[in-house]
């Protein structure tokens, strides 16, 4: 059986909010190392991969592999009943029909309990190859969100060019063009404001802004975002979850291909 307790319901609320624009139904795969999720969007352009490590919970118990097939809009409805600061416990039997969610207010004066019906989801998992990316950029997550939203006013796609000079996000549309260039800089007092660029070779790729803006729904989960790029492979956009236990929310986006 599964029994996992999260100190802050907010974490799951925000994860579900961040992915529900891309994915309708998906399996939450639970095993002794934690809760994982992998799903493509309907048009097979983007892939979401989440890992919530057992260490993110206290306590965490899962004796055998359990797949919780969940409709995300139903889960969103149930999670609306949880206050952000509530303690959230997820429970399921070994071959479950439902997942049980308990929300406890931090003052412990109220306990809410919901059973969410599960679905059978026959989901194919993709093998994500280990990639040595040519460029990786670590930057404030809100800055990335702002750039994507601003450039979406200009065009439906953005080119991301990374050179030793910096990273340039550029869009060209009917009304004109726009670009934002970021150079590497460190902010000692506010490290979350730093921009770090790790480059082994220059990269230039184009991506759909609609998807990138969708990914940035995860902004409130982490102060930083990491973009990893190599020519002719999907972009990786990564948010760290729940600090320091290597839990993550990753989005992969297939590039646009010139003809």
């Amino acid at each position: 059986m599964l029994e996992s307790r999260l100190e802050q319901a907010d974490l799951l609320k925000k994860v579900v909010e961040a992915i529900s624009g891309l994915v309708n139904d998906c399996n939450f795969d639970c095993n002794d190392s934690g809760i994982a999720l992998q799903a493509m969007d309907n048009s097979h352009v983007a892939l979401v991969s989440m890992m919530l490590k057992a260490e993110a919970f206290s306590p965490y118990r899962c004796d055998r592999n359990i797949a919780l097939g969940i409709n995300l809009s139903s889960l969103t409805k149930v999670l609306r009943a949880a206050q952000s600061s509530d303690i959230l416990t997820l429970k399921a039997e070994d071959a479950p029909d439902v997942v049980n969610l308990v929300f406890e207010s931090s003052e412990k004066d109220r306990i809410s309990e919901y059973d969410l019906k599960l679905m059978d989801i026959d989901q194919e998992h993709l093998g994500i190859p280990e990639t040595e990316y040519a460029a990786s950029i670590s930057m404030p997550s809100n800055e990335f969100q702002r750039i994507c939203k601003d450039l979406m006013n200009i065009s439906e796609s953005v080119s991301i060019e990374c050179t030793k000079e910096g990273v340039k996000f550029a869009a060209a549309g009917d009304i004109g063009t726009g670009s934002v260039t970021l150079k590497q800089h460190s902010n000692v007092d506010k490290p979350e404001q730093s921009v770090e660029i790790d480059l082994s070779e220059p990269v230039a790729l184009s991506f759909s802004l609609k998807y990138l803006v969708n990914f940035t729904k995860a902004t409130s989960l982490a102060s930083k975002v990491k973009l990893s790029l190599s020519n002719e492979v999907p972009l990786l956009v990564e948010y760290e979850l729940s600090g320091g236990n290597s839990s993550y929310l990753r989005f992969y986006l297939a590039p646009k291909i010139g003809d």
Partner: peptide, 14 residues
Amino acid sequence: PSKQGSIMSFFGKK
């Protein structure tokens, strides 16, 4: 003009 690639052409089925 550019075409949107599919994620499945990069990541194979397991």
